[in-house]
Every structure is written in C-alpha cells, then in structure tokens.
Design a protein around this nucleic acid. Structure first.
Length: 728
RNA sequence: GGACCCGUAGCUCAGGGGUAGAGCGUUCGGCUUACAUCCGAAAGGUCAGAGGUUCGAAACCUCUCGGGUCCACCA
C-alpha cells in the first residue's frame, strides 16, 4: 500500500467501476423487499453547492439497504427550475445589453433550452464526484416529453373534477419579473414607511399607500365601533386630489378600531382584503397601477371637461412609477390642505419578490387556481394516520401547520421557461369557456366549431410539476417501476422546502394516483458557515463542495456533513472540520497499512494466516480480544440503529470513536508485542474487526473503505455489494 | 398576534433523571519503524436565570431573559 492515500485518483476509479458493473441498478428480483428514494432534482444548468452535498444522507440509506440485500433504487433527475432559470438567463441577457422583451416567447424558450443544454452534465458529474450511488440508467428531466404529458394530464383531471378554476383575483405580481406568484413566493420584510393621515370628507383616514386612493370605492368601519355606528350605509362626498367623489360606508368586522382612526379606505384592485370586501359589497376592482408598476390615469384624462388643475395633476402622475407618484401626491395633499399629519416611524411588513426584492403589487389578473382544501385535507389525513412519518418528528407539526393553512394555489406563471398550460380559447366565438386538454391542441371549438384557437400563454409553476415528481419519474421509467417502487420509501430533503415541495408532493401524489408518494419524510438542516450564518457569495463564506472533495477527499467532506450535528439541525461547516475528517481517512489508511505490513511479515515467517474476514474463534482467551469483539458488536448495533432511526450522526460518531480510539489507539497498541511473536489469533481478530468496521463505514465513506478492503482482502468482491454485518 | 427551535469547555456542537462529552483550538511531553494528516498528558463548564416535581435535575414542568426561524388580510 502507498504510504499516502491518494484520494483523487482512487475515488474516480471506484466510481467508474461501480457504475460500469451496474451496482446502482436494482435487479429484477420482485421477491426482494424494495427500498427507493427519488433524488430531489437539482437545477439542470447550475453547479452543485454545499447544500446538495447533504444528499450524502440519502446515499447512506441507499448503500445500507443495498448491503442489506433490498432491491434498492435511487433515482436521479434534473429540474428545469422554471422561474429560477429564466431569472439567471435574463441576467445573462442583461449583460449583453438585451432583455427578454427583445424576443418573442418561442425564441426565448429556445434560447433558454440551448443555454440549459450547454450546461447539462456539470451537475451529474459533480454528483458522481461525491460518490452518490444513483441509478443513472433511470435519469429523468422535468421537461422530458413523457413528464410533461403526465403533468398536463393531472391538470386536466383537476379541471374535470372541478378542482381547478380560473379567476381574476388579485395575484401577487412582481412588476420587475413580470409574473404572478403563489403566496409562498412572497417574502415579507419589515419596513419603516410614513403613515399618512388624510382628510377624507368628514373623516380622517390613515394609509401608507395614498397613491391607490384614486381607486377607492368605499369606506369601511368596524360595526361595533360606536364612533362610526351612525355612518354605516350612508354615502359621503369626499374631496380628493382629482376632485370630489362619492363613497359609501360599509361594515367590516376585520377593521381594527385601534388602528389609525378606525376607518379604512377600500381599494379592491390593490389590496387582497379590500378585494374580498369588494366582492361582498359588489364594488368595482379597477386598477390604477399597471403590470409594469406605473400609474395609469388614462381613464381620468379621457373624460371631457376636466378641471385644468386636476388635469395637470393627472398628467403629471400618469405613466410614473408608484413611489414617484406617492412623493408628488404628498406635496399636492399639503397644497390642498388634505394632509393632516404624517407618522414617519410606522413599522409594517411588506410583501416583496423573493427573487429580486421588488415590492409585490397585488393586481387583478386571471390565473389558474387549484382548490386546495380537498387536496390538503387528504394530506393531513395521511399524516395524522401515520401513513406518512416524519424525521425528525418535530417537522410533522410544521407540515400540518402548513397544510392546514394553505389557500388556493395559483399555478399560472407569466414566464416562458416551463410547461405550457394546456388550455385554449376560441377566437371566433369569443366564448368565455376554456377548452382544457391533456396536452394536445383541440381540433375545433365545441361551441362554434371554429378552428382559430389560442392557447393560454402562461406556464405552470415549477412546483406544480415537481409536486408530481415521485410518481411521474417512476411511471415514465422502466416497465414495472411504478408498480414496484411506488410509494417510495423515503423523501429526504432540506426542511426549507417542506411547504414548497414536500407538502405539494403529498397533496398531488394522493390526488393524482390515489396513493401517498413516500412513507417517510426525512428533513435535514441547512448547511451554514462555522458561525451559523447562511453561506452567500456576498458574505464570502461559501465553501465549494467540489473544491473540498479535491482537497480532502469526497469521503472527508461526506463525513464532515454527518458528524457532530444532530440530524435535522442546521449544520455548521468549516474547512477545519473537513480537514479533521480527512485525518480520519488517513487514520483508516494507516490501520490498513499496519495490518498489511504484519500480514507480510507473517508470510515471510511462513506462518499460515487467512487474512480474509475469517470469523474469530468463539473461545478467545485474551481479554483485549474479547473486549474488542464486544465493542464491535455494540458498534454494529449502534450504526444499524442510527441509520434505521435517521440519526446518522450517531452512527458516524460511534464508528469514529470505535475505530480511532478503541481499535487504533488501544487495541493495536496493546497487540504489537503479540504480533511481533506472530500470534495468529491477534492478527485474525484485528483484521476481522477492521474489515467489519469498513463495511459499517462504507455507506458514510464509500471510497476509502472500498480501497482498503481491496488492498487487504485481495480479489474479494466490493463492499458496495457486500453483506451488512450482523452481530456475532 | 400565533407557532417552532436554540442558549452545555475559548469556538462549533453532541448528550439528556444518578461521578459533565466530542471535534477544532490552547498548554506540556514525545519523530515509540501504521500514521506528526500522529501519540501521551493537562488546563478549561455552579450545562442562560428563577421557581417547581424528585431521594437525586444540565436533563421533566412553569415562568423570565437572550438568540434564531416560520406563519397571519393590520389598512
């Protein structure tokens, strides 16, 4: 054996061998117990980051079950990551001085497709570099034709079942990104903004958004508020910046009498709560802000005989951005003596685009919504009945909290990079009816038989398609995969995408195929820097997993991610820690060298010794031998239990402690004299215990364990297909 | 306004009713032919605070303080 373990070459060689021999592909023996995990698909076009390296948890489970003899499948995939990828691509366009508006949607789609294809393969090679034993013969892409078909079929099923509706409700709209979002994509941030107290006819109202007042349609008060009791139902004339308007006072129990003056202006087109009030009281929801975030006063300016003062104002405001108009308005309010006071320190939470930070404008736009309650309720039932379990247990509560609070899900996105929504409208008869199919273009309009049909321009929310990933990936794969491997055994991912992805998979899995997608949800913590801060380029604290794998070995990186943090908690990571685990690799290597050295010296003395993992005799007399074997049993038990109970950190610690401090520091030191005297029993025990430890360690550190095992036991078959150790 | 998590050695974290643990760091001593990517030894903690349950609490319960995360239609 070389004096130094050369991880770079050895790791690559072993991966090729495993893959070439087909060890990642489960056999056809349907009598075996199945164990399956669908890999959370990384972005097809992006490099892996340290968070992806947490897939090591899945690899541990997969390798363990494979060694236990189960039919084990770990299915890889790549995600087109709709909005994320389009966002990245737009930045590239921006650098070239272009924007998405310079291209029609088909051209843009094609350009992004080419961009993604050009970057395909990086992510796959990186997953291989880290040793993940994925079955590459089954790899799937979220934009594969067969996947698209399944996603569209689910859409049709929802439509046919009456669980889908198109509604011109207020959508969370980012005027910079040019698309609507679901509630989850809105990031609320705390901000200090001025709260303006305005004279409003006989009342005073408080608002942080004076610019929407031009589309106020009513005033609302709490019906229990004695101050305003008499006003309910009455109409008042209110002097505004563009002249007088008439407004009715309506009751609304949600108005907080303690906020501001206890009276609220109602703007259905720009506030979700006001929108609902508008529905209830039949108020018009006409926007004054357009989809580019600019103020639109054309409705006012198109009137005849406008007072010149108001006309000048409207012209000044028209076409300007919201914030600019707000500033102008404040001045004009002062001029008209309508601004009573301003609270400059008003703290509130405001919705922003999670991607670009632009303030989200609630705007009326027709979108497809899923009636979520029936789906969510079924998911809740599956969890409460323990058909789906959670590790760590505490995440179950979080999942239930989410599922119980989900509102209807907007799945329309105004972006091109995604699966087109299979819904058409007839241009001939102009019917409001949508023609929904499972993908194919309809021949003609069922009403007028017209053939001039136009497809909805929107695409699906990425999470709508990835929410169907577990059954979709199996249905489009090898014959019989779905029947055999669905429901999958475990879904393992970061807890941060529990609501976005895991909950959606549960809902859509149960809905679309009538069966839960996985039996256990296993959620790991987020990888952070050594001070517990999030890793980000701007903070300069990013650790690149591939660089670490090259420097210290993929095994060291893998072990560092598992060791020392209770599973499910955030994982603080530092190069020091990875280096420490590289030292453990080195320790393993040297134990191997020590055994091999002794083996050779035994041979030189013509002592017969079977180096292979011969089980030591039962009646050992040496106390050190006895103790070591007892300890080994405990480690077998601990490691097995830790994997079964999703406490991988405990298994890692118990192996580390045993191999380094019991086997190497104590046992080897104590046995050196005996080995010098060619004590075969001693070498036998040492070898047996070490080789067994390597098997236990193999799921955690697959490369080095394979290499040492090969060096010590000659032509023995690889550890990846060896049998998981049992108690003596 | 709710919900959850965390506060244990200088740092990062395990532990979890019965003489306080690991990794890294620090100090001292060792190149003992497997390993200096190492070995041996040591220093270092009234386990955030208060009260309660108990023969016994760092652990269980309650509250307080401090830190973090998530949810909610506060205009």
């Amino acid at each position: 054996m070389d004096k130094v373990y050369k991880h770079q070459d050895i790791e690559k060689e072993w991966y090729s061998l495993w893959e070439k021999e087909g060890y990642f592909t489960p056999g056809n023996d349907k009598t075996k117990k199945q164990f399956s995990i669908i890999l959370p698909p990384p972005n097809a076009n992006a490099d892996l980051h340290l968070g992806h390296a947490m897939y090591v948890i899945e690899d541990i489970m997969i390798r363990y079950h494979r060694m236990k003899g189960d039919a084990t499948l770990w299915l890889p995939g790549a995600d087109h990551a709709g909005f994320e990828t389009q966002f990245v691509f737009e930045k590239i366009l921006q650098k070239k001085g272009k924007s998405r508006f310079d291209f029609d949607s088909e051209t843009l789609y094609k350009m992004i497709w080419d961009f993604v294809q050009a970057n395909r393969g990086n992510m796959e090679n990186q997953l291989k570099r880290l040793g993940f034993s994925l079955d590459w013969t089954r790899q799937v892409f979220t934009l594969d034709a067969k996947i698209i078909k399944i996603v569209q079929q689910t859409f049709k099923k929802l439509y046919d079942d009456g669980l889908l509706y198109r509604s011109k409700r207020l959508v969370n709209y980012c005027t910079r990104c040019g698309t609507g979002f679901s509630d989850l994509e809105v990031k609320y941030v705390e901000r200090v903004d001025p709260l303006y107290y305005m004279k409003y006819g006989p009342f005073t109202i408080a608002t942080s958004r004076p610019e929407t007042k031009f589309r106020d349609t009513a005033l609302a008060v709490n019906p229990k508020d004695k101050r305003y009791k008499e006003t309910i139902g009455k109409t008042y004339e209110i002097m505004g910046l563009l002249g007088p308007i008439k407004m009715k006072v309506i009751p609304d129990p949600l108005v907080d009498p303690k906020f501001g003056t206890g009276i609220m202006k109602v703007t259905p087109a720009h506030d979700p709560h006001d929108f609902e009030l508008g529905q209830k009281f039949d108020l018009p929801a006409t926007p004054i802000i357009d989809f580019s975030g600019k103020m639109d006063f054309s409705w006012f300016l198109s009137q005849k005989n406008i007072n010149p003062k108001y006309k000048a104002r409207a012209e000044k405001y028209h076409g300007k951005k919201v914030l600019a108009v707000r500033t102008m308005m404040v001045e004009d309010l002062k001029e008209d003596d309508l601004l009573l006071k301003t609270d400059e320190n008003y703290t509130h939470r405001i919705g922003t685009c999670y991607k670009c930070g632009t303030v989200i404008e609630p705007l009326p736009l027709p979108q497809w919504y899923i009636k979520i309650r029936p789906l969510a309720d079924a998911a809740v039932k599956a969890i409460l009945s323990k058909k789906i379990k959670f590790a760590p247990k505490k995440q179950e509560k979080t999942a239930l909290q989410w599922l119980n609070n989900f509102h209807d899900w907007n799945i329309s996105r105004q972006i091109v990079w995604g699966i087109r929504i299979p819904a058409w409208k007839c241009l001939k008869c102009g019917s409001d009816e949508w023609i929904v199919t499972s993908g194919e273009k309809p021949d003609k309009c069922p009403n007028c038989r017209g053939t001039d049909l136009e497809q909805d321009k929107d695409t699906f929310d990425t999470w709508f398609s990835s929410g169907q990933w577990p059954f979709a990936t199996l249905q489009v794969n090898h014959e019989g995969d779905y029947e055999y491997f669905y429901p999958t055994s475990v879904m393992e991912t970061g807890y941060d995408i529990l609501p976005w992805w895991v909950c959606r998979m549960i809902m859509l899995g149960i809905y679309a195929v009538g069966e839960i997608p996985f039996q256990t949800v296993c959620l790991h913590g987020l990888v952070r820097d050594k001070n517990g801060r999030k890793m980000s380029k701007s903070k300069g604290n990013v650790i690149n997993p591939l660089v670490m794998a090259d420097l210290y070995g993929a095994d060291a990186l893998r072990f560092a991610l598992i060791y020392g943090t209770a599973f499910g908690n955030d994982v603080p990571m530092s190069e020091d820690k990875i280096r420490g685990m590289r030292n453990f690799s080195n320790k393993l290597w040297n134990i191997g060298r020590f055994i091999k050295m002794n083996f050779e010296s035994f041979q030189n003395e013509k002592k017969s010794i079977d180096l292979k993992s011969k089980i030591p005799e039962k009646n050992l007399t040496d106390q050190n031998d006895q103790k070591l074997l007892r300890d080994l049993d405990a480690v077998i038990k601990n490691t097995t239990k830790s994997i079964e109970e999703y406490r991988f950190d405990k298994g890692a610690e118990s192996l580390y402690e045993f191999i380094w401090h019991n086997l190497a520091d104590k046992y080897i030191e104590s046995v050196k004299e005996r080995l010098k005297n060619y004590d075969e029993k001693a070498l036998n025990v040492l070898t047996y215990v070490f080789l067994t430890s390597l098997k236990l360690l193999h799921p955690f550190m697959p490369f080095i364990t394979e290499e040492i095992n090969k060096q010590l036991s000659g032509k023995n078959s690889p550890l990846i297909i060896s049998t998981w150790p049992k108690l003596l």
